[in-house]
Amino acid sequence: MFPKPIEKSSAGVRTAYKAMLPVALLIWLMPLLAIMVFSVKPGADFTTGNYWGIPSSFNLFENYGKVFFESDMPRYLLNSLLITVPTVIGCMILSAMTGFALGIYRFRSNLWIFFMFVAGNFVPFQILMVPVRDLTLDMGLYNTIAGLVLFHVAFQTGFCTLFMRNFIRALPFPLIEAARVEGVAEWRIFLYVVLPLMKPALAAMAVLIFTFIWNDFFWAIVLTQGVETQPVTAGITSFNAQYRAAYHLMSAGSIVAALPPVLMFFLMQKHFIAGLTLGAVK
């Protein structure tokens, strides 16, 4: 193990290390802690210049109450959910299939199709912006949740295919050969042999895609506008306009907007990290 395990060091070093951990964490999360403090302050503290002192009153419920009951935030959160969940499902279906095709079968263009997905996944959004916006307009899907979902599904299929294909490659191939020898149809191999084995990968991918899509801002402002369709990342700017210079409410709003993926992460931590680090080890 590297670096040297701390247990093998002297008691002094051990204590110092344990003391340093919370300090380091505090520094690391400082910008975030700052807005958490802001979000429970009363507005009066900002006009009186009491930015960093003890809050003159504890306004947690009042501030967050405003966010939830007196703004469009709940609607934006709902939109985010309506965009994110179908995207995740769509990506899982498409990429399970493409990953299966590219991971199991050997045919001449296999690698090229795979590379197309990988390369496409890396392109800058801006090169797609004008044509995708046009396409969405032509289909009458501009400013609809469906329009945004379709694009996200298509684009994320690139990443998901990479992910799935590499995972399927690592599955024991003899399993599939055994099934073929039994005369099992290929689509049944997919459904009953490979798919169950893909469960952990699908879970990991779902959590990742959820986070990616939830946090998308660029496509939200390119393809949607207004409170009926925009997800929370885009809605937060309208929210902030409503409460400009009311830092306690903007802080509370930001925290609310950031929370769902954070919760997702803490609940599904194992899958999340497994997904992110796939390929980091060989």
Binding site: M97, T98, L102, N110, G120, V123, A154, T157
Partner: peptide, 18 residues
């Protein structure tokens, strides 16, 4: 089979990305 499985994904990707 691989082509049948690829069609939806590839089609989507071609139209929206490539």
């Amino acid at each position: 089979t691989p082509w049948l499985f690829l069609i939806p994904g590839v089609l989507f990707f071609l139209v929206y990305v490539i």
